[in-house]
Design a binder for these strands. Structure first.
Lengths: 231, 231
DNA sequence: AGACTAACGGCACTCCGTGCCATCATTCAA
DNA sequence: TTGAATGATGGCACGGAGTGCCGTTAGTCT
């Protein structure tokens, strides 16, 4: 196995730091240095030195300089996909989509403080903003794939899948952004989740035809009832 | 002025190539080399040499290696914004949004051949795919800004703006992708535009008022019925 | 104790992107 | 016609990113 987690027996030499601890030190150092001295002005050497490791080690934890300020999207994507694959076949698609979306919040709620600092960085440094956009797009594509498979039969299934996926991701990011700009408090996580779920009312799961069809039938029924009652 | 266009009087020394011509040579060289030898395996020196210019000159035409295979999104974004700012105040928002979206197609329809090659590259090379995602996100943000300003009054205006913007961009990309995978023919441009416009039927421009209206009527009817029955 | 594994640090290397400057062609003014 | 101004070029050098390689060190297993 090439992935020893925090409970791995292998320890570092001097101060016996776990791999997770070293990683955290690197993230902290990167966030601090980027914030205080700017992204471009901070070299990988600076980050590694501040974390007490060698430059080469930095690249064993992160693919590049940009990844030092990013949550672990890899694991998050896997969780999202798991929600889809493990969902009961009878669960309404809307429900699955919302549950899958909510999964991602944990990536930020777990550590609101660094989440807030990351947010400030990713919205001011062009390189990090582009990185973020690329990450978000991976979620969008994952949702699109899953939805496309489930809407293959529906009219305009492919379009509907693309639109719903994009809308869900957009709503998620809006809720997250609102939460982050309002201080990223623990109390605000409920509001954040609720705000995300409001997207449900805007999603084109039902075709417009069905809606108007339902509305027409309802009106007919009401009319009949009224006539019956008045009779 | 720092922006002499193709008609600029200044010419190059040896073979008198206009700036636009040099740029096209660079793009051609980049696309060809990336396609035939791979992106990572191609250096900027290779591209510059193939185009017959110095390495330093390459960076005077493109910000970086990734930008050598990208349409001119800068100008396209400006055109999209112009559609919004120059639209008649009475034009329905849906109409403006669709017109703005269609504007971007020209960026690809103008040269279907290189558009097709670019598409193949941007969907196989990770670095270019990320770049593309970042570019697309700029359009999404532009649409979001414009829609947010126009939906400020509407209930859930901010959410609605985010969702519509994401949906429009997603639909645009789906239509474009379909057109590109089907050979990027001149004849297919009509179909592409029509496919994009299908998003109109899925957009939450209308408030849920209509739905709640139906629900209210239902409740009224039920109430009446109950009253009638109890009488 | 000795072999094995895994992470580390350092070195060297390629390539990207940029600042600087000398060069050359064109244009304009005296 | 001649000389200054403009603007694009190519070369050089430099800092920094990211990678391959390797010797070293510290825990683990037998």
């Amino acid at each position: 196995m090439n992935r020893p987690d925090a409970s791995s027996p292998a320890r570092r030499g001097r101060s016996a730091e776990s791999r997770a601890e070293v990683r955290r030190h690197l993230v902290d150092a990167a966030v601090t240095l980027f914030t205080e001295h700017g992204y471009d002005e901070t070299t990988v050497d600076d980050i590694a030195a501040a974390a007490g490791v060698g430059r080469r080690t930095f690249f064993r934890y992160f693919r590049g300089k940009e990844d030092a300020v990013s949550p672990d999207h890899e694991a998050s994507l896997a969780r999202v996909e798991a929600v889809f694959t493990e969902a009961h076949p009878d669960e309404p698609l809307l429900s699955v989509v919302l549950r899958a979306g909510e999964t991602v919040f944990d990536l930020y709620f777990d550590d609101p403080v660094v989440a807030h600092k990351r947010f400030a960085l990713t919205h001011h440094v062009p390189a990090l903003r582009d990185r973020e956009a690329a990450s978000v797009d991976r979620y969008r594509r994952l949702f699109t794939r899953q939805l496309r498979a489930r809407l293959a039969e529906a009219p305009d299934g492919e379009l509907r899948a693309a639109v719903i996926a994009a809308a869900v991701v957009a709503s998620h990011n809006l809720a997250l952004r609102t939460w982050l700009t309002e201080g990223a408090t623990a109390a605000g996580t409920r509001t954040c989740r609720e705000q995300f779920r409001r997207v449900a009312g805007l999603l084109p799961f039902e075709t417009g035809d069905e809606l108007s069809d339902v509305a027409r039938r309802l009106e007919d029924a009401v009319e009949r009832l009224e006539r019956t009652a008045s009779a």
